[in-house]
């Protein structure tokens, strides 16, 4: 059977490690050794800590901001690509938007550091016009720039594909019925492409929620996000059970958000 290798591989090396994470979160650490246990101490320690909830809030906020911002920036572009350009230009643009997936995100972030730093490209450019250096690196703004860079190509592509499926006759009909331009976009195009738009935003949320590179190297890592917390805890020794608790909280959040988003996407139109 051809189906079995994939099934076995994903059971053994994907599902099982994730389930193992659940077990791990109940283990205890004694003398720098992890011991199998059924102990709620890790959960208690993490969930009663202020720092964890601060990080949780920050991460959720950043991911939401990134999803909303990326969707808003991407939509006019996707709209233009889907509706306003010739087929050849469309194909060419889609091809160009795939290129970033083959470039290293790390290198891009490093490059962004050079753009955003105090003595960096953007501030030097502003300096020509006598505008003082603006602090961008190691701020939330820096983090957001990185996250949008990460998500934008994917979101534009997903939005473009969903807009391609919008029935052109509907748009024509709206125009014939004297529906205004903006109103057509908001009342006809956006609702018909809702599933794709929501899924695109969901992907942006998931990517931003789990990313630790932008918050660390563009946001300065302080205060930490949840993913920075996980890498810190894992790096600094044998407290993996606590890192597992943080990871499980992240997964729970992501599953909830994904579930709600998909519910919303497929909800019956109207009421």
């Amino acid at each position: 059977m051809l189906s079995l290798p994939l099934l076995i591989w994903q059971l053994a090396f994907f599902l099982f490690p994730l389930l193992f994470l659940v077990a791990l979160s109940f283990w205890t650490v004694r003398n720098f050794q992890m011991q199998p246990d059924l102990d709620f101490g890790n959960w208690e320690r993490i969930l009663t800590r202020r720092a964890f909830w601060d990080a949780y809030l920050l991460t959720a906020l950043l991911a939401t901001a990134s999803a909303v911002l990326t969707s808003l920036i991407a939509f006019p572009a996707a709209y233009a690509i889907s509706f306003k350009v010739s087929d050849r230009v469309k194909q060419w643009l889609i091809f160009v938007l795939i290129i970033p997936f083959f470039t290293s995100y790390l290198v891009r972030v490093y490059s962004l550091q050079v753009f955003l730093s105090d003595a960096g490209i953007i501030n030097a450019f502003l300096g020509f016009f006598g505008l003082g250096p603006i602090l961008m690196l190691n701020t939330l703004f820096g983090t957001l720039v990185g996250l949008v860079t990460l998500c934008l190509p994917l979101v534009v592509l997903l939005q473009t594909f969903s807009l391609n499926f919008v029935d052109r006759d509907l748009v024509e009909a709206a125009h014939n019925l004297r529906c205004g331009r903006l109103r057509t976009v908001l009342m006809v195009i956006v609702p018909s492409a809702r599933v794709g738009l929501v899924i695109a935003a969901l992907f942006a949320f998931i990517l931003s929620f789990g990313d630790f590179v932008s918050p660390l190297y563009l946001g300065g890592g302080n205060p930490p996000t949840l993913s920075i917390m996980i890498t810190d805890i894992t790096k600094s020794g044998q407290q993996w059970p606590r890192a597992a608790v943080v990871a499980l909280m992240m997964i729970t959040t992501l599953l909830t958000v994904a579930f709600l988003a998909i519910q919303f996407a497929y909800k019956e139109r109207g009421k």
């Binding site: 791990l24 993913s227 990871a247």
Partner: peptide, 19 residues
């Protein structure tokens, strides 16, 4: 099971794999 892995944050995948 086959298609979900890319949606799991890499940090979590990393930790789960390492453990």
């Amino acid at each position: 099971l086959a298609l979900l892995p890319p949606t799991i944050p890499v940090v979590i995948m990393g930790l789960a794999m390492l453990a």
